[in-house]
Design a protein around this nucleic acid. Structure first.
Lengths: 195, 195
DNA sequence: GTGGCTATCTATAATTG
DNA sequence: TCAATTATAGATAGCCA
Protein backbone atom coordinates (compact mmCIF):
# COMPACT_ATOMS: atom_id res chain seq x y z
CA UNK A 1 0.00 0.00 0.00
CA UNK A 2 2.11 2.74 -1.29
CA UNK A 3 3.75 3.88 -4.45
CA UNK A 4 5.46 0.58 -4.68
CA UNK A 5 5.27 -2.87 -3.17
CA UNK A 6 7.89 -3.55 -0.54
CA UNK A 7 9.47 -6.74 0.65
CA UNK A 8 8.84 -7.60 4.29
CA UNK A 9 12.41 -7.49 5.56
CA UNK A 10 14.33 -5.19 7.85
CA UNK A 11 14.61 -1.65 6.47
CA UNK A 12 18.33 -0.96 6.59
CA UNK A 13 18.16 2.83 6.28
CA UNK A 14 17.62 4.04 9.84
CA UNK A 15 15.65 7.11 8.84
CA UNK A 16 13.26 5.21 6.61
CA UNK A 17 12.91 2.59 9.31
CA UNK A 18 11.93 5.21 11.83
CA UNK A 19 9.44 6.87 9.48
CA UNK A 20 7.87 3.56 8.57
CA UNK A 21 7.69 2.59 12.23
CA UNK A 22 5.89 5.78 13.06
CA UNK A 23 3.37 5.50 10.23
CA UNK A 24 2.63 1.81 10.66
CA UNK A 25 2.41 2.16 14.43
CA UNK A 26 -0.28 4.78 13.96
CA UNK A 27 -2.06 2.45 11.57
CA UNK A 28 -2.02 -0.52 13.95
CA UNK A 29 -3.19 1.60 16.88
CA UNK A 30 -6.09 2.86 14.78
CA UNK A 31 -7.01 -0.67 13.76
CA UNK A 32 -6.87 -1.75 17.37
CA UNK A 33 -9.15 1.09 18.44
CA UNK A 34 -11.60 0.18 15.69
CA UNK A 35 -11.55 -3.46 16.73
CA UNK A 36 -12.37 -2.64 20.34
CA UNK A 37 -15.34 -0.52 19.25
CA UNK A 38 -16.67 -2.65 16.41
CA UNK A 39 -16.29 -6.00 18.14
CA UNK A 40 -16.50 -5.04 21.81
CA UNK A 41 -13.07 -6.60 22.35
CA UNK A 42 -10.31 -5.93 24.85
CA UNK A 43 -6.95 -5.19 23.28
CA UNK A 44 -3.59 -4.30 24.73
CA UNK A 45 -0.57 -3.42 22.60
CA UNK A 46 2.94 -2.63 23.72
CA UNK A 47 5.54 -1.56 21.19
CA UNK A 48 9.22 -0.76 21.40
CA UNK A 49 10.91 0.83 18.41
CA UNK A 50 14.43 -0.20 17.48
CA UNK A 51 15.59 2.98 19.22
CA UNK A 52 13.94 1.87 22.46
CA UNK A 53 10.99 4.24 22.58
CA UNK A 54 7.76 2.64 23.65
CA UNK A 55 4.14 3.17 22.77
CA UNK A 56 1.03 1.48 24.01
CA UNK A 57 -2.61 0.99 23.20
CA UNK A 58 -5.27 -0.21 25.53
CA UNK A 59 -9.01 -0.57 25.23
CA UNK A 60 -11.11 1.74 27.43
CA UNK A 61 -12.21 0.89 30.97
CA UNK A 62 -8.99 -0.92 31.80
CA UNK A 63 -5.23 -0.66 31.49
CA UNK A 64 -2.31 -2.70 30.22
CA UNK A 65 -1.81 -4.27 33.61
CA UNK A 66 -5.48 -5.24 33.82
CA UNK A 67 -5.37 -6.97 30.45
CA UNK A 68 -2.06 -8.62 31.27
CA UNK A 69 -3.57 -9.90 34.52
CA UNK A 70 -6.54 -11.29 32.62
CA UNK A 71 -4.13 -12.89 30.16
CA UNK A 72 -2.16 -14.45 33.00
CA UNK A 73 -5.34 -15.83 34.49
CA UNK A 74 -6.38 -17.19 31.10
CA UNK A 75 -3.15 -19.14 30.74
CA UNK A 76 -2.56 -19.51 34.49
CA UNK A 77 -2.86 -23.24 34.85
CA UNK A 78 -0.64 -24.08 31.92
CA UNK A 79 1.93 -21.57 33.15
CA UNK A 80 2.00 -23.26 36.54
CA UNK A 81 2.58 -26.69 35.02
CA UNK A 82 5.23 -25.24 32.72
CA UNK A 83 7.09 -23.85 35.70
CA UNK A 84 6.96 -27.16 37.51
CA UNK A 85 8.74 -28.59 34.50
CA UNK A 86 11.23 -25.76 34.52
CA UNK A 87 11.95 -26.55 38.15
CA UNK A 88 12.83 -30.10 37.19
CA UNK A 89 15.06 -28.87 34.42
CA UNK A 90 16.93 -26.55 36.75
CA UNK A 91 17.51 -29.39 39.19
CA UNK A 92 19.68 -30.97 36.52
CA UNK A 93 22.00 -28.00 36.12
CA UNK A 94 25.72 -28.52 36.59
CA UNK A 95 27.74 -26.52 39.07
CA UNK A 96 29.33 -24.44 36.31
CA UNK A 97 25.91 -23.42 35.15
CA UNK A 98 25.02 -22.42 38.69
CA UNK A 99 28.11 -20.23 38.69
CA UNK A 100 26.73 -18.61 35.54
CA UNK A 101 23.42 -18.01 37.19
CA UNK A 102 25.19 -16.47 40.14
CA UNK A 103 26.66 -13.93 37.75
CA UNK A 104 23.16 -13.06 36.64
CA UNK A 105 21.65 -12.74 40.05
CA UNK A 106 21.54 -8.97 40.03
CA UNK A 107 19.63 -8.93 36.77
CA UNK A 108 17.28 -11.53 38.20
CA UNK A 109 16.78 -9.43 41.32
CA UNK A 110 15.92 -6.43 39.17
CA UNK A 111 13.30 -8.30 37.23
CA UNK A 112 12.02 -9.89 40.42
CA UNK A 113 11.60 -6.42 41.84
CA UNK A 114 9.77 -5.15 38.81
CA UNK A 115 7.31 -7.98 38.87
CA UNK A 116 6.88 -7.66 42.59
CA UNK A 117 5.68 -4.09 42.22
CA UNK A 118 2.59 -5.57 40.66
CA UNK A 119 1.77 -7.37 43.85
CA UNK A 120 1.96 -4.29 46.02
CA UNK A 121 -1.66 -3.39 45.44
CA UNK A 122 -2.83 -6.80 46.57
CA UNK A 123 -0.44 -6.96 49.46
CA UNK A 124 -1.78 -3.65 50.74
CA UNK A 125 -5.29 -5.07 50.64
CA UNK A 126 -4.09 -8.17 52.42
CA UNK A 127 -2.32 -6.15 55.08
CA UNK A 128 -5.26 -3.92 55.81
CA UNK A 129 -7.62 -6.87 55.81
CA UNK A 130 -5.33 -8.65 58.21
CA UNK A 131 -5.35 -5.71 60.55
CA UNK A 132 -9.11 -5.54 60.46
CA UNK A 133 -9.31 -9.26 61.12
CA UNK A 134 -6.92 -8.96 64.03
CA UNK A 135 -9.05 -6.21 65.54
CA UNK A 136 -12.16 -8.35 65.22
CA UNK A 137 -10.39 -11.25 66.87
CA UNK A 138 -9.43 -9.12 69.84
CA UNK A 139 -12.97 -7.75 70.14
CA UNK A 140 -14.28 -11.29 70.24
CA UNK A 141 -11.75 -12.25 72.90
CA UNK A 142 -10.08 -14.82 70.70
CA UNK A 143 -6.38 -15.56 70.53
CA UNK A 144 -4.01 -12.76 71.43
CA UNK A 145 -1.32 -13.85 68.99
CA UNK A 146 -1.57 -12.16 65.62
CA UNK A 147 -1.96 -14.96 63.12
CA UNK A 148 -3.40 -15.40 59.73
CA UNK A 149 -4.46 -18.77 58.53
CA UNK A 150 -6.11 -19.49 55.22
CA UNK A 151 -7.31 -23.06 54.95
CA UNK A 152 -10.20 -24.65 53.11
CA UNK A 153 -10.01 -28.03 54.84
CA UNK A 154 -12.72 -26.94 57.23
CA UNK A 155 -11.12 -25.38 60.30
CA UNK A 156 -10.35 -21.72 60.76
CA UNK A 157 -11.31 -18.69 58.76
CA UNK A 158 -11.45 -19.16 55.02
CA UNK A 159 -11.64 -15.65 53.74
CA UNK A 160 -15.40 -15.31 53.76
CA UNK A 161 -16.29 -15.19 50.10
CA UNK A 162 -15.26 -17.18 47.06
CA UNK A 163 -12.46 -19.28 48.52
CA UNK A 164 -11.12 -21.11 45.48
CA UNK A 165 -8.47 -23.44 44.25
CA UNK A 166 -5.77 -20.97 43.23
CA UNK A 167 -4.78 -20.01 46.78
CA UNK A 168 -4.25 -23.66 47.62
CA UNK A 169 -1.27 -23.92 45.34
CA UNK A 170 0.50 -21.00 46.92
CA UNK A 171 2.30 -20.88 50.21
CA UNK A 172 4.81 -18.18 51.10
CA UNK A 173 5.79 -16.01 53.99
CA UNK A 174 6.50 -12.45 52.89
CA UNK A 175 8.25 -10.32 55.47
CA UNK A 176 9.14 -6.76 54.48
CA UNK A 177 12.52 -5.99 56.00
CA UNK A 178 11.43 -2.44 56.78
CA UNK A 179 8.02 -1.13 57.86
CA UNK A 180 7.84 1.73 55.38
CA UNK A 181 8.68 -0.22 52.28
CA UNK A 182 7.82 2.59 49.91
CA UNK A 183 9.59 5.26 51.87
CA UNK A 184 13.02 3.95 51.00
CA UNK A 185 14.56 4.47 47.64
CA UNK A 186 18.28 4.46 47.07
CA UNK A 187 21.09 3.45 49.36
CA UNK A 188 19.61 1.05 51.88
CA UNK A 189 20.60 -2.48 52.80
CA UNK A 190 18.95 -5.25 50.85
CA UNK A 191 18.17 -8.69 52.01
CA UNK A 192 16.50 -11.37 49.99
CA UNK A 193 16.57 -14.82 51.51
CA UNK A 194 15.27 -18.10 50.19
CA UNK A 195 15.30 -21.03 52.56
CA UNK B 1 -12.16 -1.30 2.96
CA UNK B 2 -14.89 -3.48 1.70
CA UNK B 3 -17.95 -3.31 -0.43
CA UNK B 4 -19.27 -0.51 1.70
CA UNK B 5 -18.09 1.98 4.23
CA UNK B 6 -18.96 1.12 7.81
CA UNK B 7 -19.41 3.31 10.82
CA UNK B 8 -17.01 2.60 13.69
CA UNK B 9 -19.50 1.56 16.34
CA UNK B 10 -20.34 -1.71 18.05
CA UNK B 11 -21.66 -4.34 15.62
CA UNK B 12 -24.91 -5.44 17.21
CA UNK B 13 -25.34 -8.70 15.29
CA UNK B 14 -23.29 -11.20 17.26
CA UNK B 15 -22.42 -13.33 14.25
CA UNK B 16 -21.21 -10.42 12.18
CA UNK B 17 -19.31 -9.15 15.19
CA UNK B 18 -17.51 -12.46 15.57
CA UNK B 19 -16.69 -12.66 11.85
CA UNK B 20 -15.39 -9.12 11.79
CA UNK B 21 -13.36 -9.77 14.96
CA UNK B 22 -11.74 -12.79 13.38
CA UNK B 23 -10.87 -11.05 10.12
CA UNK B 24 -9.61 -7.84 11.67
CA UNK B 25 -7.66 -9.74 14.32
CA UNK B 26 -5.82 -11.58 11.56
CA UNK B 27 -5.14 -8.27 9.85
CA UNK B 28 -3.72 -6.62 12.95
CA UNK B 29 -1.54 -9.62 13.75
CA UNK B 30 -0.15 -9.53 10.22
CA UNK B 31 0.57 -5.82 10.49
CA UNK B 32 2.29 -6.39 13.80
CA UNK B 33 4.46 -9.13 12.35
CA UNK B 34 5.38 -6.89 9.43
CA UNK B 35 6.25 -4.06 11.80
CA UNK B 36 8.60 -6.22 13.83
CA UNK B 37 10.42 -7.33 10.68
CA UNK B 38 10.47 -4.06 8.76
CA UNK B 39 11.35 -1.83 11.68
CA UNK B 40 13.17 -4.22 14.00
CA UNK B 41 10.61 -3.43 16.72
CA UNK B 42 9.33 -5.40 19.68
CA UNK B 43 5.56 -5.78 19.76
CA UNK B 44 3.21 -7.59 22.11
CA UNK B 45 -0.52 -7.82 21.54
CA UNK B 46 -3.13 -9.41 23.75
CA UNK B 47 -6.74 -9.59 22.58
CA UNK B 48 -9.92 -10.82 24.17
CA UNK B 49 -13.01 -11.18 22.00
CA UNK B 50 -16.40 -10.25 23.40
CA UNK B 51 -16.94 -13.97 23.96
CA UNK B 52 -13.84 -14.15 26.14
CA UNK B 53 -11.49 -16.01 23.83
CA UNK B 54 -7.97 -14.66 23.78
CA UNK B 55 -5.29 -14.36 21.13
CA UNK B 56 -1.80 -13.00 21.33
CA UNK B 57 1.02 -11.81 19.17
CA UNK B 58 4.60 -11.41 20.19
CA UNK B 59 7.76 -10.54 18.31
CA UNK B 60 10.36 -13.31 18.01
CA UNK B 61 13.12 -13.90 20.57
CA UNK B 62 10.92 -13.00 23.52
CA UNK B 63 7.45 -13.54 24.95
CA UNK B 64 4.54 -11.50 26.21
CA UNK B 65 5.93 -11.61 29.71
CA UNK B 66 9.31 -10.37 28.55
CA UNK B 67 7.79 -7.41 26.76
CA UNK B 68 5.50 -6.67 29.67
CA UNK B 69 8.52 -6.72 31.97
CA UNK B 70 10.33 -4.30 29.69
CA UNK B 71 7.23 -2.12 29.65
CA UNK B 72 7.08 -2.18 33.44
CA UNK B 73 10.73 -1.18 33.60
CA UNK B 74 10.10 1.64 31.13
CA UNK B 75 7.34 3.09 33.28
CA UNK B 76 8.73 1.70 36.53
CA UNK B 77 9.42 4.87 38.40
CA UNK B 78 6.03 6.40 37.75
CA UNK B 79 4.34 3.16 38.76
CA UNK B 80 6.27 3.16 42.00
CA UNK B 81 5.22 6.68 42.86
CA UNK B 82 1.64 5.86 41.92
CA UNK B 83 1.62 3.01 44.38
CA UNK B 84 3.03 5.21 47.14
CA UNK B 85 0.01 7.44 46.59
CA UNK B 86 -2.28 4.46 46.68
CA UNK B 87 -0.78 3.51 50.01
CA UNK B 88 -1.60 6.94 51.37
CA UNK B 89 -5.15 6.64 50.08
CA UNK B 90 -5.63 3.31 51.81
CA UNK B 91 -4.42 4.78 55.07
CA UNK B 92 -7.51 6.96 55.05
CA UNK B 93 -9.99 4.10 54.79
CA UNK B 94 -12.70 3.79 57.41
CA UNK B 95 -13.13 0.66 59.47
CA UNK B 96 -16.22 -0.37 57.48
CA UNK B 97 -14.19 -0.23 54.33
CA UNK B 98 -11.55 -2.39 55.91
CA UNK B 99 -14.28 -4.89 56.71
CA UNK B 100 -15.15 -4.85 53.01
CA UNK B 101 -11.55 -5.48 52.09
CA UNK B 102 -11.48 -8.35 54.52
CA UNK B 103 -14.34 -9.90 52.56
CA UNK B 104 -12.25 -9.61 49.44
CA UNK B 105 -9.08 -11.01 50.87
CA UNK B 106 -9.42 -14.37 49.20
CA UNK B 107 -9.86 -12.78 45.79
CA UNK B 108 -6.82 -10.64 46.54
CA UNK B 109 -4.84 -13.72 47.53
CA UNK B 110 -5.79 -15.38 44.26
CA UNK B 111 -4.61 -12.47 42.20
CA UNK B 112 -1.52 -12.20 44.35
CA UNK B 113 -0.83 -15.82 43.57
CA UNK B 114 -1.34 -15.37 39.86
CA UNK B 115 1.08 -12.48 39.71
CA UNK B 116 3.52 -14.28 41.94
CA UNK B 117 3.79 -17.13 39.46
CA UNK B 118 5.66 -14.70 37.28
CA UNK B 119 8.39 -14.41 39.85
CA UNK B 120 8.97 -18.15 40.14
CA UNK B 121 11.44 -18.24 37.31
CA UNK B 122 13.56 -15.56 38.87
CA UNK B 123 13.28 -16.96 42.35
CA UNK B 124 14.57 -20.27 41.07
CA UNK B 125 17.56 -18.51 39.60
CA UNK B 126 18.08 -16.64 42.84
CA UNK B 127 17.82 -19.80 44.90
CA UNK B 128 20.31 -21.72 42.80
CA UNK B 129 22.65 -18.78 42.69
CA UNK B 130 22.41 -18.48 46.45
CA UNK B 131 23.29 -22.13 46.86
CA UNK B 132 26.28 -21.74 44.58
CA UNK B 133 27.36 -18.66 46.51
CA UNK B 134 27.02 -20.46 49.82
CA UNK B 135 29.16 -23.30 48.53
CA UNK B 136 31.84 -20.86 47.44
CA UNK B 137 31.77 -19.18 50.84
CA UNK B 138 32.31 -22.48 52.60
CA UNK B 139 35.15 -23.38 50.24
CA UNK B 140 36.81 -20.08 51.08
CA UNK B 141 36.34 -20.68 54.80
CA UNK B 142 34.16 -17.63 55.24
CA UNK B 143 31.16 -17.34 57.52
CA UNK B 144 29.30 -20.53 58.35
CA UNK B 145 25.91 -18.86 58.57
CA UNK B 146 24.00 -18.95 55.30
CA UNK B 147 23.38 -15.33 54.41
CA UNK B 148 22.80 -13.33 51.32
CA UNK B 149 23.52 -9.67 51.26
CA UNK B 150 23.13 -7.47 48.21
CA UNK B 151 24.53 -4.01 48.71
CA UNK B 152 26.08 -1.52 46.35
CA UNK B 153 27.37 0.85 49.02
CA UNK B 154 30.77 -0.76 48.75
CA UNK B 155 30.99 -3.66 51.19
CA UNK B 156 30.01 -7.22 50.42
CA UNK B 157 29.18 -8.94 47.21
CA UNK B 158 27.28 -6.92 44.67
CA UNK B 159 26.24 -9.50 42.14
CA UNK B 160 29.23 -9.21 39.87
CA UNK B 161 27.82 -7.69 36.70
CA UNK B 162 25.55 -4.80 35.96
CA UNK B 163 24.44 -3.84 39.46
CA UNK B 164 21.91 -1.09 38.86
CA UNK B 165 19.45 1.21 40.50
CA UNK B 166 16.29 -0.87 40.42
CA UNK B 167 17.38 -3.31 43.10
CA UNK B 168 18.01 -0.43 45.47
CA UNK B 169 14.34 0.29 45.79
CA UNK B 170 13.51 -3.25 46.79
CA UNK B 171 13.94 -4.97 50.10
CA UNK B 172 12.08 -8.16 51.01
CA UNK B 173 12.65 -11.41 52.77
CA UNK B 174 10.98 -14.29 50.99
CA UNK B 175 10.77 -17.49 52.95
CA UNK B 176 9.04 -20.45 51.28
CA UNK B 177 7.06 -22.25 53.95
CA UNK B 178 7.98 -25.59 52.42
CA UNK B 179 11.19 -26.69 50.69
CA UNK B 180 9.54 -28.25 47.63
CA UNK B 181 7.29 -25.37 46.75
CA UNK B 182 6.18 -26.83 43.45
CA UNK B 183 5.64 -30.30 44.76
CA UNK B 184 2.60 -29.25 46.77
CA UNK B 185 -0.68 -28.55 45.13
CA UNK B 186 -3.96 -28.93 46.98
CA UNK B 187 -4.71 -29.44 50.64
CA UNK B 188 -1.76 -28.01 52.55
CA UNK B 189 -1.67 -25.33 55.21
CA UNK B 190 -1.11 -21.83 53.95
CA UNK B 191 0.56 -19.01 55.67
CA UNK B 192 1.01 -15.53 54.34
CA UNK B 193 2.26 -12.96 56.78
CA UNK B 194 2.95 -9.29 56.37
CA UNK B 195 4.82 -7.53 59.13
C1' DG C 1 12.69 14.19 12.89
C1' DT C 2 7.37 16.33 10.94
C1' DG C 3 3.49 16.84 8.21
C1' DG C 4 0.96 16.59 3.89
C1' DC C 5 0.29 14.51 -0.85
C1' DT C 6 -1.04 10.97 -4.24
C1' DA C 7 -0.46 6.54 -6.70
C1' DT C 8 -0.64 2.09 -5.38
C1' DC C 9 -1.09 -1.70 -2.67
C1' DT C 10 -3.82 -4.16 1.13
C1' DA C 11 -7.47 -5.29 4.09
C1' DT C 12 -11.95 -6.34 4.33
C1' DA C 13 -17.55 -5.75 3.92
C1' DA C 14 -20.67 -7.62 1.29
C1' DT C 15 -21.79 -11.31 -1.40
C1' DT C 16 -21.84 -15.79 -3.32
C1' DG C 17 -21.46 -21.02 -3.38
C1' DT D 1 -22.44 -22.04 9.48
C1' DC D 2 -18.35 -21.50 7.03
C1' DA D 3 -14.87 -20.69 3.13
C1' DA D 4 -14.08 -18.23 -1.31
C1' DT D 5 -14.73 -14.17 -4.18
C1' DT D 6 -14.82 -9.37 -5.41
C1' DA D 7 -15.49 -4.48 -5.33
C1' DT D 8 -14.19 -0.82 -2.41
C1' DA D 9 -12.45 1.74 1.47
C1' DG D 10 -8.38 2.40 3.82
C1' DA D 11 -3.33 2.26 4.66
C1' DT D 12 0.99 3.70 3.24
C1' DA D 13 5.79 4.12 0.21
C1' DG D 14 7.97 7.44 -1.92
C1' DC D 15 8.25 12.44 -2.33
C1' DC D 16 8.52 17.03 -1.22
C1' DA D 17 8.19 21.34 1.62
Amino acid sequence: MGRGKIEIKRIENATNRQVTYSKRRTGIMKKARELTVLCDAQVAIIMFSSTGKYHEFCSPSTDIKGIFDRYQQAIGTSLWIEQQRMGEDLDGLEFDELRGLEQNVDAALKEYHVISTQTETYKKKVKHSYEAYKTLQQELGLCEEPAWFVDNTGGGWDGGAGAGAAADMFAFRVVPSQPNLHGMAYGGNHDLRLG
